[in-house]
Computed example of a mutant assay.
Amino acid sequence: MDGMKKFFKEQAQILFPEVWELAREIGENPELGYQEFFAVDVLTRFLSRYGFDVLRPIAGLETAFLARFQGKKPGPRIAFLAEYDALPEVGHGCGHNLIGAASAGAGVVLSRSEELLGEVLVIGTPAEETSGAKVTLVKKGIFDRVDAAMMFHPGSQNVPEVSSLALDAIEFTFIGRSAHAVAAAQFGVNALEAMITFFNNVNALKKEIPDDTRINGIITEGGTTPNIVPDKAVARFYLRAPRRKGLDELQKKVIHCAKEAASSVSAKVTWRKFENSYDDMLTNRTLAGVFTKNLRELGIKRISSPQVAMGSVDMGNVSRVVPAIHPYLALGKGMNIPHTRDYTEAVLSPAGEKLLLLAIESLVGTGWDLLNDPKLLKHIKKEFYQETDLWG
């Protein structure tokens, strides 16, 4: 480990009690997506105290922010992405309190260098668990002048290179005609019957699609009383596939299932996206390699090979406009199940504390390597342009 890396390690350990307090406070005060005002206040006060210029809100999102620290000379712009939304009932059962604190902590530690070139950004990104504000931030141009973006996520293993599934969230509404369910059923058009046929069609479709493709749906509205023919039925679906192109094809097939179901009872059907669509995560392999190198320098020996996460992340949309990584680092022994109260307790335990320090140190080391090696950053960008051309 070179002299600057040792300096950053020392700074991370000095600053760590304060950063752990951030993670603890956010963890003990969970907020749902777009309601994370406490978390944003805590994080931005911390960043401002250490010399970051903070802009909030941004992109029309009340709980999004952009914090900037300019080095002494021009150079690359490196972004650490902070998440801080919680889950209903469960709280921080996905560890976003650690993510937000790690990115803010990494930004401040990196800014402590007297030799800093370029600019360090910490971007606050709300609502990852629901509508995925990173999608909006991408559309609004927040990442247009960023050279590389990174964050970490708690997981069961140390996995620097991760891909994810593209996601579309689609709501289907079937419209029929109400009537007395006994005395005049023949005059009604049963929207719920169309919905049930739709689900049967989708179940048949599931037998034809690849194993790594997912269709999951629920009925959110199906009538008010058994004595009235339902004139409206609503369902929400998540469609997932390894690549955006494959997901677009899947969406067409599911919509065809809905049209056939509506036609079978002379109902009408409409559909809309009720949440932002996520692209699959396009991890920059060179950048992930730099993160891996820093993990090894920190004494981490158990590092897993590239994996596909069977979920979806809005970081995928970021990875289409800037070289990006979304590595997972093991929480404790990796036995805790995410999105549970058990996980919420784990991220606030000594295991969560240990993980947070590792995340800060590995992110800082990766950021420093990019800011100080123009050839490396050039190689990262070359790979990025080649990969985005390939996948579209």
Rank of each mutant, 00 (worst) to 15 (best):
M4V: 15
Q13S: 13
F16I: 14
E18K: 15
L22D: 04
R24G: 07
I26K: 07
P30Q: 10
G33V: 05
Y34M: 12
A39V: 04
D41I: 01
L47D: 02
F52L: 02
D53R: 00
L55V: 08
I58Y: 00
P76I: 07
R77G: 00
P88H: 12
E89G: 08
G91M: 06
C94M: 01
I99V: 12
A101K: 07
A104M: 02
G105R: 09
V109C: 00
L116A: 06
E119W: 08
V122S: 05
E128H: 14
E128C: 12
E129I: 10
G132M: 13
V135N: 14
L137D: 03
L137C: 01
D147I: 10
Q157T: 11
N158E: 11
V159Y: 03
V162W: 03
H180K: 00
Q186K: 12
G188L: 00
N190C: 02
A191Y: 05
A194D: 12
K206D: 08
K207W: 01
D212M: 01
D212W: 01
N216M: 14
K245G: 08
K245A: 15
K253L: 04
K268H: 14
T270V: 15
R272A: 09
D280K: 09
M281F: 15
L282R: 09
N284S: 15
R285P: 00
G289E: 04
T292K: 07
R296D: 06
E297K: 09
L298E: 09
A309I: 15
V313D: 10
V318L: 08
V321T: 11
P323D: 13
I325Y: 03
I325T: 10
A330M: 11
I337W: 02
L357N: 05
G365E: 13
L377E: 02
Q386I: 13
E387P: 04
G392T: 11
